[in-house]
Amino acid sequence: MKWAVVVFPGSNCDDDAVQAVQSFGDEVHKVWHQERDLSLYDAIILPGGFSYGDYLRCGAIARFSPVMQGVREAAAEGKLVIGICNGFQVLTESGLLPGALLRNDHLQFRCELVDLTVHNVNTPFTAAYTEGQTVKIPIAHGEGRYVADEETLRTLERERRIVFTYRRNPNGSALDIAGILNERGNVLGMMPHPERAVADWMGSADGRALFASMRRCAKEAIHVG
């Protein structure tokens, strides 16, 4: 299986994502933001960081970058796309996921290991978890408060697209949302960093199951949607 990790100017979790994927023995390439073609890859990671300095709004400039064309095409083909932290912000700004991520309600950056609940294990990203499982994954963000209009939130709930919620809300997110899926179920955005929880020495290896789920899905060539 072949992974792409997109690198925007200001991405800073790209190496961590590469390492996490490599720990499964998979092939992974960093893809510079000026490339457009992502057709070679089975799964795409939009990593954390401060793309384009997060000027204007987090992720607001990255959505215009050439590589996003390739990301949109991959998503449209049903390939797996995961946006982590800043990557989640880029996905909402690009319209690939609904809603938006605003400044944490306490106005501070927050970095800590948090407990998440896994809500739906019938997804390509969570199949290796168990329903209702509590997992420990670190957060590190200043703008992670998920908001969306009432109707969108109800839809996300009804369609079981809220995949991860915080056990103790660290930022004021609506419905304690930590991660959501697109309608088709092949694009996930999440604020916590699963790539920083792939070995016991990191304090948690609970992020491994997420990558394992994606690998299983891609290997079995399950077409999502």
């Binding site: 961590d16 800590e112 990191m202």
Partner: peptide, 25 residues
Amino acid sequence: IYRQYDTTVKAATRVGPGGDAAVLR
């Protein structure tokens, strides 16, 4: 203080703030 700092980016922090010394891989 330190929850306002990203202490785990680079995924190499073996012991972060709060230890007698930090330990990195």
